[in-house]
Design a protein around this nucleic acid. Structure first.
Lengths: 171, 171
DNA sequence: ACAAACACTGGACAATGTGCTCAGCAGTGG
DNA sequence: CCACTGCTGAGCACATTGTCCAGTGTTTGT
C-alpha cells in the first residue's frame, strides 16, 4: 500500500518542488485521465516504476489530491451558476459556515478580505430557482446582506495545466 | 471505443436524468476515484456490464466530464488565492478574455451580471506576488477597474456530492 | 575522495482487471 | 404479441497492476 520510493508526506501548502517530469506527468494525466501507469510510462519515455514512484510522491505530497470525477452541474439539472458575496455579523462565522455547508447548492465557500465577508458559489435549476436558493442561503440570522452575480459565460473553466507548466518549468 | 449500450450523446446543459444508481455510482467514484469498474460493481451490488454502461452513458451525457487529477495550487507553490471583479470597456470582451486566458495564474474566468463584468479566480506565490499577478491581469487596455478579495479560508472546498445526492434522490 | 543514500532502468512473476461477446430474462410500449 | 431496452451472469484473450530484484549513474555528507 505504501509507495515505492516515496518517503515524504508533507502537509500541503508548503510549495513542493515539482520538476519537469512531474509537470509532464500531471499534464498528461489531465489530458487523458483514464490512462494507466504503464501507458503513461510509455508516453513519457521512462520506466514504469518511475511513473509509479512519481505518482505516489505527488499524492503523498498533496500536489495531486485525487482523481474525483468532474461532474457538470448543468448536466445534473443545475444550469445556473452564481456567486454571492455575503456580509455577516461578527462572531457568527462558524454558524454561517455550518449553515452554508448544509445547502447542497452551495458548491464552494470562501472567507475573504474586504469587509470580513464570504464569497460562495451557487447553482440552481433556473433563474427562478436561484431565488429559492438565495433565500435559503441568506435566510439565516448571522447574514446581514448578500449581493449576487449571475454567471453568464465561463470563458475559462477551472484549469490548472498552465500553472503546472509554469511551476515545473515546461516553458 | 463506443459505449456498450450508450446511445445518446446529448449536448450538455439539458439536465439529464440521473437515477439513484447513477447517483450512488458518482458518489462512489468521488469517494474512491481509483476503483475500477469491477470493484465498483461489487460495491454497488450490480453486474459489471451495468456499471460499464452507466459510466459510458454518464460520460456521453456530459454528466461526468472526466477524471482529471485534482491538483492543489498551494502544493505547487501558489498558496494565495484571490477573486478579482473586473470592469471592462464595452466591446473589449473578447480581447480581455484572450488576455486573461494567457495568464497562467488565472484559474477561472466568468462573465457575470451586475456591473462588475467579469469575475476571475487568481492564485499567487505570496501576497507580494499577488500584486504582480494583479498588475499583469489589469495591465490591459480593455480593463477599466478591478477589485480584489483575497481568500483567507476555504470552509467549503469545491464539492459536488451533496448536489448529486439531491439530484438523484439519495436524500 | 569514499561510502551511503537516492533515483531510475529493465526485467520478471502471479494475480487481477479490462474489453468484448453472448444468451437469457423482465418490463415497456406500440 | 412482438420489438426494444436494460440488467444479469458467464466466459475468453489480453493487458495492466502490484511487487519484487539486480544493476547503474548521481548526489550528499564528512
Amino acid at each position: 500500500m505504501a509507495g515505492h520510493f516515496a518517503q515524504d508526506h508533507n502537509p500541503p501548502g508548503a510549495g513542493m518542488a515539482v520538476d519537469e517530469l512531474d509537470g509532464r506527468l500531471i499534464v498528461l494525466l489531465a489530458r487523458e485521465p483514464r490512462i494507466g501507469v504503464l501507458e503513461a510510462s510509455r508516453r513519457l519515455g521512462v520506466a514504469r516504476g518511475t511513473v509509479q514512484a512519481r505518482m505516489d510522491r505527488l499524492q503523498s505530497n498533496g500536489v495531486i489530491r485525487g482523481f474525483g470525477p468532474d461532474v457538470d452541474p448543468a448536466a445534473l439539472g443545475y444550469p445556473v451558476t452564481a456567486f454571492a458575496t455575503l456580509e455577516i455579523k461578527q462572531g457568527q462565522g462558524a454558524d454561517v459556515r455550518a449553515h452554508l455547508t448544509s445547502v447542497p447548492e452551495v458548491l464552494e465557500l470562501h472567507t475573504t478580505t474586504g469587509h470580513g465577508d464570504m464569497l460562495c458559489r451557487l447553482v440552481a435549476r433556473s433563474n427562478a430557482d436561484l431565488q429559492r436558493v438565495i433565500d435559503r442561503v441568506v435566510g439565516f440570522d448571522g447574514i446581514v446582506r448578500a449581493s449576487t452575480a449571475i454567471v453568464m459565460e465561463n470563458p475559462v473553466p477551472l484549469r490548472i495545466i498552465p500553472l503546472v507548466e509554469q511551476a515545473s518549468g515546461l516553458t
